[in-house]
Design a protein around this nucleic acid. Structure first.
Lengths: 173, 173
DNA sequence: CCTAATTACTTAACCTGTTAACTATTAGAA
DNA sequence: TTCTAATAGTTAACAGGTTAAGTAATTAGG
């Protein structure tokens, strides 16, 4: 599935000249490592989702509506960490499948609130146990302490880097 | 840019019934945390790449060819951790832009080796300094020790989870 | 030698990420 | 009040992730 699965002999690093010596650190790529980890984790959840023709993002939306209750599209977008254009497509898809429904807001006709349908709730109940089980499995195999540490480091990394996004934004304005 | 940027008040968790009490842990999603971290990191590299109309994946390919030398598509796919169908599109794009070139293999005509062109090498030299600088910046801001720890945890997580992929595969066969 | 399986790679179809532009509606200022 | 700016959401266009199917060349078995 993933490219590294049938990983064979990789090309050796070329002998580096003085010129490119400082580039060796390139070999470790943080985005790539994060991506690999994400894929490895998602692979554990995928079977349960694929069995019901759901993507992980669609599942995230259903889960969010189940747990937090009805939400507007923008709110869903924030909560699920999915950009609005993507969310727009996702809710259309889920709505077409009868898993969620849209309720217009008479106060502000730009807004519309999404809600799980009964059928969506049934699907949630069908998938949730396997999802919980998979999560517990990962926690056990990897270790609770390490998992917490990982979460902390990731949060901290995001905090560190987005803090100076703000700084940049301030500079710009 | 990212949905959480203009993060306002999020919907509070609904009061949980006895039934769904065990679902609270859902609120922390490992894939989502990994994605957020990845996006935060990539945002740091994007400006330099976007200035030259490169995506991070395209840059990864160029970097790989510069550092490891000419490679076949499958090898590139492994090294860059990009699936072959994606790689197929990427090399076509880079080739069309004259940044890499394709050399047929006379021994085995299914294979073709990709190589950086002079123009590709020039582009690499133009972008690399900013990329290195960004990486060093992240290392400093986040802390070298924590960064190493993060890499270790990610590698370990992948190892833990893919180890039992194999087990599953064995069971299946 | 000839057919069947494998291998390297491409194409296709679908979904999401990302940026920009666009519509409709509401809020604000002159 | 009317004209402008902001807001909620959608659409469009392009790139990559993912799975499946397809093509061409090579290897292996009979």
């Amino acid at each position: 599935m993933s490219p590294s699965e049938k990983s064979k002999k990789l090309a050796p690093l070329r002998p580096v000249t003085n010129d490119t010596e400082h580039l060796r650190q390139f070999d470790r790529s943080l985005p790539m490592s994060l991506l690999k980890a994400r894929e490895a984790v998602m692979k554990k959840f995928m079977p349960a989702l694929k069995a019901h023709e759901l993507t992980s993002q669609q599942w995230r939306v259903i889960r969010a509506l189940e747990q937090r209750g009805d939400m507007e599209v923008s709110e869903l977008s924030d909560v699920c960490y999915i950009l609005k254009p993507s969310m727009s497509r996702i809710v259309q898809n889920l709505q077409a499948r009868g898993l969620i429904e849209r309720r217009g807001n008479s106060e502000d006709r730009r807004r519309s609130t999404m809600a799980l349908t009964d059928s969506g709730r049934v699907l949630f109940e069908k998938i949730a146990p396997a999802s919980i089980e998979r999560y517990q499995y990962i926690t056990e195999k990897f270790g609770y302490g390490k998992l917490e540490l990982l979460y902390e480091l990731l949060d901290e990394l995001v905090a560190t880097l987005s803090k100076d996004d703000d700084k940049q934004d301030d500079d710009k304005s």
